[in-house]
Design a protein around this nucleic acid. Sequence first.
DNA 1: TGCAAACCATAAC
DNA 2: GTTATGGTTTGCA
Length: 194
Amino acid sequence: MIEVYAQSHGDSWFAVALVNQQIVSSSIAAEQKAVLNNVLTCMPFNEAFQVFHEPTAFAKTALSTLQDIYEGKETNTELPLLTSCLPVYTRKVLKATAQIPVGYVTSYGAIANAVGGGPRAVGNVMANNPFMPLVPCHRVVKSDFGLGGYGGGISVKIKLLGREKRGFSETKEVNLGDACLKVYPVEYVIRHLA
DNA sequence: TGCAAACCATAAC
DNA sequence: GTTATGGTTTGCA
């Protein structure tokens, strides 16, 4: 049985789907219908689910983490993501994406460089990212610092990035173990918007 | 700028 | 197997 929890805060909706204390999918969107639809379509297997209104302690933690990310806060809580049913390449991309620190962005091509494959393949993984925004796919943009897209709506991506400004000015490299990922200050993207 | 062609893993047929 | 599909990239006019 998959448990689904949804809650609104301010102008947005947050939702998570759990199966025995592990996160199967999560989402942020402007409307309740949209978040629910997101988590449900992202669920990797066909199993009965039920929507609950009283969150368990674990669900509360997950939801509040979503909210923290949405507000641009630093989050250290590591939540258990259930990725075992996803294709290997997808997992590699998600893992790399998860390493992008707050305040920085990278490009689809840069990730492709680090984990192998091509930029479009990376784009595909983002488009189907079940763990939005736990895996910060909003920090992945086009190579010219144009926005690219976002599952929760492009305006959400802009809001998120706007709140993640940390005033960094230099590019940096993140160590992925077997490879390096180049990241750029989020300011580059903001500047590109104007 | 704008457009066309190459790119690459997945899912759907 | 084969085809269709992207949250791309790059090169060239």
